[in-house]
Design a protein around this nucleic acid. Structure first.
Lengths: 354, 354
DNA sequence: GTGAAAGCGCTAACAA
DNA sequence: TTGTTAGCGCTTTCAC
């Protein structure tokens, strides 16, 4: 007679069994007579009961089956980057069959690290994944720790009690750097990912270069330094988007002493540089070589194929998914680092003879 | 002394007050002396208590603050479509400040409508949003109904007990059709969004045309028919992606009696057609006019600007967000339909003189 | 202004 | 194999 949704108790009453027996009929976790089970299921159908309320189950088990993914940026911007998308797809595809759902937690636009997203404080989740390189001063991280939620950090700095999933980007950057240098380039410029939440745009001063806060640009820059590259300029961009790469390309290639090679820290930035070069009437790679980072498939850049170091994006998502599973099984997964592969395309070649 | 996380009861005990009083200290919903409140909060800090456990709150209130978004496709594919992304961004931006989180529920690759996603059955959510046009035979929809979860359907067919959010795409398509016809075109081909989950590729036979299952291609086709267009060919694509538009463009423009105008049901498809035309050495719009649908900003198509009918994507997300809010306030929001605007670009012009 | 008590819907010991 | 009992952590009447 309940006017609201039927509960397990209603079903049990209708079937003439106890609530715990009815529970067994649904969970299957325990011995139950086939006839009893059928009776319960029949009663459920009769009452239009749609199975145990997950809220009750969650409170009891302390598990929600939800993995919070902190994007660390607006969805709009993150989702324009195939790097995020492909990893998220790999993650969701791994998590789905395991019964986990992905809760999106977008970051506010451009906030200092002290900024705390309300969902981080209030949303139910079993595990949190920080997909954009956590730093120690991150307020979200502090809150997650206080809540006792295990944290997986992607390409972040090593942090106490945080499970790391990363890529060999320093090594990859070094390999890319050696490739470009090996071609004979001496005037090499770098287009960098944002240094911090301020997301500035322009050639970085030495002072600014000394205060790169985010790990990813720092590691990739370090890799190029490892290769012995001393860049003629490092151009900081506000986000890994084609238009910012284009702006950087125009700025770097317009002057008189233009670099003979430009290495960008992402393929999206690199493709913007290629577009800028084309607009300036420069041939790639005859007049200027361009290299990227990530190994994306960018058919619209045709006929050019970007020289890049590729990272296994879907695999990265899958690794995170498996780490989530391990955590939920009570294990403590160790850090994982995935390799990168140099892919030489058509956009790098010897410097122009002068 | 609890080895696990402290609970409200622990905090209350430490502060020397009752659990109900401690609850008031956090919720603020009720009269409480400032000194008592301070004492509770101090005890919480001392115990490293991070606020009321949302699971308990949820069970009590019956609310989870989670909005399930059924993507109806792989994330990988959906997220390559700016139409989905921009709407999702609008939705998440509206929902975030209201305290709701977005739970992503990707669809399996290419499944018949009988396919049921496990998360649809098991995940906690207050409202479900079907972002890709629900049909009556959808198993997910049936399950959501059985679970008593309110459903918002985006651009779907009108369904009993489902809140509709749509766009005037039939009207928009008609307007676009009249624009193209007004230029003098008589041989017009259409590149269509997928007809159903089979996602076939190629020119549709009359039989195939009669069995379009998904609402969006059907409505947009109907709009063109409203404008009096009798297409020389309708090319069905497996997804709204540039590469499929390119394939369609090649197929339609390669033959001897090529159309003088191609109308695509999405901008991504249309831009693929433009690329195909360029590859075939055809000038747009002198040799062939191309029009799209959605009104995306596609800078990489430069110098061309696509003629299209634009839909307010972020606004669509915001409308859904407000509908969610209304539902959670106990109201029953009515259906909403957003208008579209014809935007004439550089890709349409008069047909070539023969 | 504060506390006692009764659940929200479910599961997991344990007992029968 | 089934039923009894006791919570999971919280909020919310309703007394005091």
């Amino acid at each position: 007679m309940a006017s609201s949704r039927p509960t397990l108790a209603d079903v049990a009453a209708a079937a003439g069994v106890s609530v715990s027996t009815a529970s067994l009929a649904f969970s299957g976790a325990g011995p139950i007579a086939a006839t009893t089970k059928d009776r319960v299921l029949a009663a459920a159908t009769a009452l239009d009961y749609s199975g145990p309320n997950p809220l009750g189950r969650q409170l009891r088990s302390g598990r929600s089956g939800i993995v919070g993914v902190l994007i660390g940026d607006q969805l709009r911007r993150s989702f324009r980057d195939p790097v995020s998308i492909q990893m998220l797809d790999g993650l969701a595809s791994t998590l789905g069959p395991l019964g986990f759902g992905v809760l999106l937690i977008p970051g506010a636009a451009d906030q200092p690290p002290a900024h705390l997203d309300p969902l981080v404080e209030s949303a139910v989740m079993d595990v949190a994944v920080l997909i954009c390189g956590a730093t120690a001063d991150d307020a979200n991280l502090a809150t997650l720790r206080r809540r006792g939620i295990p944290v997986i950090s992607v390409e972040g700095e090593p942090l106490e009690g945080v499970i790391e999933v990363g890529i060999e980007d320093r090594v990859g950057a070094a390999e890319l750097g050696r490739h470009v240098q090996g071609l004979g380039h001496e005037r090499i410029a770098i287009v960098s990912l944002p240094f911090d939440w301020q997301r500035r745009s322009g050639v970085a001063t030495p002072a600014r270069l000394a205060e790169i806060r985010w790990e990813i640009p720092r590691r990739r820059l370090a890799g190029l330094t490892d290769a012995g590259i001393v860049p003629v300029a490092v151009y900081e961009t506000p986000a890994s988007l084609v238009e910012h790469g284009k702006a950087a390309g125009h700025a770097l290639l317009a002057g008189p002493d233009r670099p003979t090679a430009i290495i960008a820290q992402s393929d999206l930035l690199a493709s913007g540089v290629v577009l800028a070069a084309r607009e300036l009437g420069l041939r790639v790679p005859q007049d200027v070589s361009v290299a990227g980072f990530d190994g994306l498939d960018l058919p619209w850049l045709a006929p050019d194929v970007l020289t890049s170091v590729s990272q296994p994006l879907a695999e990265k998502g899958a690794v995170i998914g498996r780490a989530v599973q391990a955590l939920m099984s009570g294990e403590l997964p160790g850090p994982e680092t995935l390799g990168m592969t140099l892919q030489v395309g058509t956009t790098t070649g010897p410097p122009p003879a002068h």
